[in-house]
Amino acid sequence: MFSLKEYITPSSLEEAYELLNKNKNNVILGGLLWLKMGNKNYNMGIDLSKLGLDTIIETEPQIEVGCMTTLRQIETSSVLNTCFDGIVSASVKNIVGVQFRNCATVGGSVYSRFGFSDLLTALLALDCYVHMHKGGIIPLEKFIKMPYEKDILIKIIIKKDGSRASYKSCRMTATDFPILAVALSRCNSSWKIAVGARPNKAALAAKASKLLPENPTKEDIASACETVTSELHFGTNLRGSAEYRKELAKVLVKRGVEEICR
């Protein structure tokens, strides 16, 4: 059982950041879904809900999603349902249920960088950045590999680069974690393939992505699929073996590419 000595809703990001770094047991509260399952004794829980960070804002060059935006907002956002063939919205639709997604926040999901994250996989295939209070704007691909620092994720930024995109996952039951998640995008002639739930954190298959021309042939696709399984590491857990995940990766990548080219 987790415990919390103090709960506070700061009125500015500066204040929140200061509080966060005052004590090593101070923590930013996201949707609480994960935090409350742990056994940690926290000193102070910092709730950012008074800072107006729960919005999805579309501007000419980009879409900005505040850290306190819920997964349900993402799911129902007309912008995110339209841009990038709707993959950002699609990626969260199978996560447990509506009341769960009404609690879970984008900041919590992205900051935590969980291996099974559907959202992280989808975002990774796009031109996406995180805006950290101290660390500034960091490409998501880099952020995923960074250590967990005591910083505040303010928002994520997705560049509207006109990418076509596709999101695919396989699950044991409809609302379970994915056995494997794959997101792809094509911007002009450049492809990105992101594979999540391997079961490690989502990662880009850079070599495989490069093997795909704008309109790939069957052979191009097949060789990209093979490369995905050789360049990324796949592991075994309750939901599937590394071998099975590799097979799924090939199939889902192939289907994603075909969908985008259709």
Binding site: Y7, M37, G45, D47, R72, V96, F100, N102
Partner: peptide, 26 residues
Amino acid sequence: DTANCGLCTVWVNEKTVLSCSVLAAS
């Protein structure tokens, strides 16, 4: 204990939430 079952669903400001995963303070 893992926010999976939905039994504790209530509304906060008219939106369904899992009351097992919301701080009373909030």
